[in-house]
Design a protein around this nucleic acid. Structure first.
Lengths: 340, 340
DNA sequence: CTGAAAGCGCTTACAG
DNA sequence: CTGAAAGCGCTTACAG
């Protein structure tokens, strides 16, 4: 309440201050403040009043250190400027709030090296979080697994093959299939599939493989383009294939779809007149106005499952079994893809 | 490294384990691990090797409690599903990373009551963060100020009039002015301004007031609509005004602009043939394809200034002066607004 | 260059 | 119903 001098941080009020002000021991103050254990109602009242008056805020670090446990779940997040991750983040928070789970988040840039990823992981583990939700593909199972016996780890959004990591993930293959079936149904016989390489984006890669499978099985001629991480990567190549006869470009993400539409417009190609285009994600605001043909990924369901599963893992008493939950989104037919 | 039984968390290795394994005291282990103070190079090597081998992760809570300080800055964030906040979040993280500042984030839903907002604040203060960056309008200066003498507090994105809170904010009034001047230049004489009410969105309110001022000063007839928080709120009213003669609808956000375009399309009104529309934010992916007339808010500059300022505040030795930095974005003329 | 000791703020059995 | 005591894992002067 004093010490407003700059440079000298104000003295924080501790539980000892509160206890003294209320004329009790620290032990009693602790109990009354938490509302656990035995204490006289009027004693509690006095303690609560003192805490309020002094502006007491419990030191979480000390409390958790002493109690030997943490009520916080760590969340590793990828760059939230991508709306798909932004929304996932938002939903995870929302779910956690509703279930009374405290979440502490650290993010890692998409471009960061393994060392930084591990660093972020250590920061969370250093806080002795009770569980870990990983919502970034940037960190591998190998980096995660050593800690799987210390704390439950769940990957959100992406499949995971490693033994001890739980998941709540998108059905990327199913998504690729649904989109490809739509294109087949529209009668396209020569199609470009434009996706990030496995290194650039594993989910995109999975979608692309599934698309290829469905298209090929339907007798469609497929040109696969394995591109870099940036949306504009591979776009020129895709348009070249269009000029060579392809009637549709299937993109593994809406960002790529936008890039293709931009380039098509610049090149004087009409969508869907000259070329049909599809994407995947379906969460861009304004996607409807653009008429994007896409697939809405089930962000809400994945977020809910992730938090629910984590909560179960935290309260599990029996031996823990591996949880793997997959969620399929819904096709959004738009005006960017038409029958040939 | 044992205790893989479910239910029984593995024993975490402590610095005592590392010290014992290396045959030194905990004090020496601490120094060598941090690389501070004096120690024999070969001793350090032994300690580092032991830590590595045992899988030691320093307990941050204990370390900071003992050291009496924190290296972490708290970030209070609003729902990141809004791209404007998602991008701000992303940039803040990026900047913090680059400057070696650790950020720990808690979010609060847009709809949450004051109690929850304060709760989130307490969670951060309970972690004894070294500083606080507030990137949500949901928490008031009055709630923040009591803590301003314990820790530097900076509001990012939004102006702040309270005495002890620093800011790095958008020039909302300037943004409103720039957009209004554009509409005036296009020759519109009857205009609707559609914005959230002060309670729904204070920044939108500021933009709207500035628009009104510029429009009125130019002799334009203005209809002000003070709407709810949802993008579709007030849209019907706006279209009614258009039917009554208004030639332009100025929205205080891109979300509202999209809602107006959607409704206009449904009502058979052409944009910009029958009505010009403007927004504000300019960060929607695909905004260019839609031809949105908007204003790109300077997210990057605000984020950089916020982190930079916070870092200065943390290392300041002299008496701290109030920092208030404002940033103006750039007009993005699109195809949704045309001359009458 | 290294270690013994005290202490950070809080909680938890255990006695009363 | 309440308090004294020990301890959570680590760091920091202070002696050696």
């Amino acid at each position: 309440m004093s010490g407003a001098d700059a440079g000298t941080p104000a003295l924080r009020v501790t539980i000892s201050d509160v206890a003294a002000a209320a004329g009790v021991s620290r032990a009693t103050a602790t109990r009354a403040l938490k509302g656990e254990g035995r204490f006289a109602p009027e004693t509690q009242e006095r303690i609560l009043e003192a805490a309020e008056r002094l502006g007491y805020v419990r030191n979480t670090m000390a409390a958790e250190l002493a109690a030997g446990r943490t009520g916080t779940v760590g969340l590793m997040l990828r760059d939230a400027s991508n709306p798909a991750y932004g929304l996932l983040f938002s939903r995870l928070q929302e779910e956690a709030h509703q279930r009374g789970l405290d979440l502490v988040t650290v993010t890692i840039g998409a471009d960061e090296q393994g060392a930084k990823q591990v660093n972020a992981l250590h920061r969370l583990l250093g806080m002795r979080v009770a569980g870990l939700i990983v919502a970034t593909g940037g960190i591998s199972a190998a980096q995660l697994e050593p800690f799987a016996d210390q704390v439950p780890i769940l990957r959100a959004g992406r499949v995971e093959s490693a033994g001890r990591i739980h998941t709540a993930h998108y059905d990327d293959e199913g998504h690729g299939r649904l989109l490809a079936e739509h294109i087949v149904a529209l009668g396209h016989r020569t199609v470009v599939v434009l996706a990030g390489s496995p290194e650039a984006s594993y989910p995109e890669h999975l979608r692309a493989l599934a698309m290829q499978e469905v298209l090929t099985a339907a007798g469609v001629a497929v040109t696969m383009i394995s591109a870099g991480a940036r949306p504009e990567d591979g776009v020129d190549e895709a348009l070249a294939a269009v000029r060579a006869g392809a009637t549709a470009v299937m993109c593994a993400s809406d960002y790529r779809q936008l890039a293709v539409m931009r380039a098509a417009r610049a090149a004087g190609l009409r969508v869907p007149g000259d070329v049909s285009v599809t994407g995947c994600d379906g969460i861009l605001p304004g996607a409807d106005l653009l008429g994007l043909t896409t697939l809405r990924i089930p962000v809400e369901a994945v977020a809910a499952a992730a938090v629910e599963t984590m909560q179960q893992l935290l309260t599990a008493d029996g031996p823990e079994t591996l949880v793997r939950r997959s969620f399929t989104g819904t096709l959004v037919p738009g005006s960017t893809a038409a029958a040939v």
